[in-house]
Design a binder for these strands. Sequence first.
RNA 1: GGGCCUGUAGCUCAGUUGGUUAGAGCGUCCGCCUGAUAAGCGGGAGGUCGCAGGUUCAAAUCCUGCCAGGCCCA
Length: 927
Amino acid sequence: MEMKDTLNLPITDFPMKASLTQREPEMLAHWEKEELYKKIRQSAKGKPKFVFHDGPPYANGHIHMGHALNKLLKDFIVKIMSMKGFDSGFIPGWDCHGLPIEHQVGKKLKEKKLSLEKSEIRKQCRIYAQEFVDIQKEEFKRLGVLADWENPYLTMNYSYEATIVREFGKFVENGLVYKGLKPVHWCTSCQTALAEAEVEHADHTSPSIYVKFPVQSGIPQAMAGLSSLYMVIWTTTPWTLPANLAICLHPEFNYVAVSHGDDTYIVAEELLPSLVTEWELRDYKVLGSCKGAEWENAVCRHPFIDRESKVILGEHVTLEQGTGCVHTAPGHGQDDYIVGLKYGLEPYNPVNNAGVFVPEVEHFGGMFVRKANPEIIEKLRQDGFLILAVDIKHSYPHCWRCHQPIIFRATNQWFISMDKKDLRKNALAGIDRTKWIPEWGRERIYSMVENRPDWCVSRQRAWGVPITLFTCNACGEFVNSSELFQRIAEGVEQHGADFWFDTEDLLPQGTVCQCGGKEFSKESDILDVWFDSGVSHAAVIESNPELHWPTDLYLEGSDQHRGWFHSSLLESIGTRGKEPYKAVLTHGYVVDGKGKKMSKSAGNVIAPEKIIDQYGAEILRLWVASENYREDIRISNEILKRLTESYRKIRNTLRYLLGNLHDFDYSEDHVPVEDMLELDRYILYRFNVLRDKILTAYEKYEFHVFYHSFSNFCVVELSAFYLDILKDRLYTYPVKSHGRRSGQTALHILMMGMVRLMAPVLSFTSEEVWACLPRKSVDEESVHLSQFPEPTNVSFDDALVTKWEFLVDLKREVSKALEISRREKVIGHSLDASVKLELPEKYQSLVESDELKYIFIVSEVELVDDVGTEGNVYESDSLAGVKVFSKMHSGKKCERCWNYFAPDTQAGKANGEICLRCEGHLQATGA
RNA sequence: GGGCCUGUAGCUCAGUUGGUUAGAGCGUCCGCCUGAUAAGCGGGAGGUCGCAGGUUCAAAUCCUGCCAGGCCCA
């Protein structure tokens, strides 16, 4: 083994085993102690700004994969911008108000059998939200996300709440806010109106009933003379019948009169066959037919209430189910409400907050609506107005929190009008001024804004920011005073939202309404939480003189086209006439290995915590970078296993670079690029190509391009090609020889470049590498304080590129040839081989015969005109005309460099066990 | 039911304006090495490009339908 001692083998303390789960927390503690984030911010002072705005996750529950994906993408971007020379920070935020938290707190209180004042509930909610802010904060930090964790924005901070009050005040002043009676999704259990986002659809069993409405007058000409006429309606919500005010027909459909026994039913012609089957009609006769339009202004009688039901026309009537005659209760349905407006029908709603009929309702007053269903059916049956009642299972809206079926119910709500002041039109223009990544995001949000109804911003709940309005008891108008809003906002800034609820005499004494009214009531509703987060651009960005408004980038999951992107847009356009962001990036959802969504019931949920405990956050980071997040992205144990292996390869490559730089001091030992060996210049040229590719990918936020190209570079260009070839020089040449120093210079440049290119993604490992670098080589204490590498000025012209690309291809062909000999047990190691190479003339100018053996890592290469046909001859497919003959070298294996040599001419003069080359090297070293 | 999106080897990704036997890395299998060693190197096998039609001299690439999946709605 004495020859081994004369070699320059790699030496490094950088461990092969990553031990991420142990090392990461240590590094995080180090970063925190050194206040790394602060230092990055300080070092960026004066640079051009890139303003990113973090969307606030809801402060409830632990983080899941979606959160991890989202925050890591943001972390990549902020780090990238910072290393590109921008002043770019990360102010994290949380969404704290709203029903889900109030609900959780409510449950806790219920368990303790406590019922509290609203102000106490708010206090409890605040504590609850803060708890989860703290929990999630630690979970996000653990991912290696560098952000201003000390100073996050919380929508429940007093100053933030004050901003909400002020922003809402702007809408009021601008005349976009109105109070209206409108059917909204209503949860009778939570006793609140629900936003569309708060409604989920699930299967539900409902009665499906057909009800006869006697026609009283206005029978069309075509039906004249027919008696006992009944319009037949279909509904799955019998409880809405007490609120029936009309029956709606499609003007273009044909309606037939069908006699059955003593009755004659009016139904849509196209639906008759299916109805005949469903109702099991045996003897029936079609007596007449006419367009729905001819029925307009006819009048029916309500089957059990002393009231008329008008026949009206509407385009929303379909032939998919029912009878084509649509039971219309304008207080209980969106379509009903809209068509009712046309015909001057009031949005009549006889159901209270708890879903109970008001006492005035005949027969059913005081009854809960779903309890009333069977009673109403029974009443109809007894009175002979029921044709059929069965149960059906169908998709029905449910409350997203309590999962109870909800109802549609007209209530007094506060709205922001989409059209009164052109909010919709202006928002659409704003969408067109924004860059959507991917581009289809534009389509998506555009059609949502185009079609959405007015924004219902009121909630009948406790945990939120109040709608700070006073309404005149006499006329119902609200007091619109900017000074008043200002005063309230100041109070909220000091004391929080409770200021509104708890302070008496907010209204200046002697306030008189325009109508003369002197009595006012204080609004007790709170604002939709989407309004809260929608003002973040004002509370967090605009108010901060260090940042610029509008923001450069928002980045959230694709669900936020309806959520935060949407509410932020409307809020900003409504108050400032301008969109709050320049670009919006969306990512897909995390799904399981088969592409199915994760759910508790499917049992396929993978928690970030588990991955961190098992593999380390670095693997999670690499996972985010490896997948194309613009689509749904998969995660599974197999994927993580593959990534871990890939990570190991990257890590080992870096470790090898470090190991071979242990005796290299760049300032003293480096070889000027122009003096470096051609192979070394070639790899630097290749690294320049890689660098460009990665920086371009970062520019476009295409992180998977980084992962693939970086990993490929490590595997293909470095490990299998360059480093393998370089070993001979690094190990056997004299320490300070030009050949070795030339290679080390290349390794040093690669090392310094790679560690910085990977830092935004592999933030832990790059820092670990950084710490191992000679202090002389690095100016910054952390890789995250450094900038991306400049390209190396290596002149490598097209001819050289062609040559080296050919040599790479040729090496692969030689390897195939060697494999034949190896398979036949002629050789083992490639250095055992002696190779004869036949090249077509066009390739001959590309090769220099004495360097080939080192590139192929064989002991001898002879260029010949004809390799002949004897022995192991390999003919290349990909390089036409290239033939390789390989055999066991007939000489002696050098004990030192393992190359074979001819004993008579190439042996060392003093020691015949080593070759002449090694002898020279040993002498030069003085050994 | 509607809007938007996705579907290329076991896994993650490439595939330029439609144009030669669809590429890469990992994994797998086989082998080598023992001077990156719980490492390193080489080679082989793997895809009717979700399915079915259509346009075209030519389709993974364009069109239609269907199937599967995701987000958002009804």
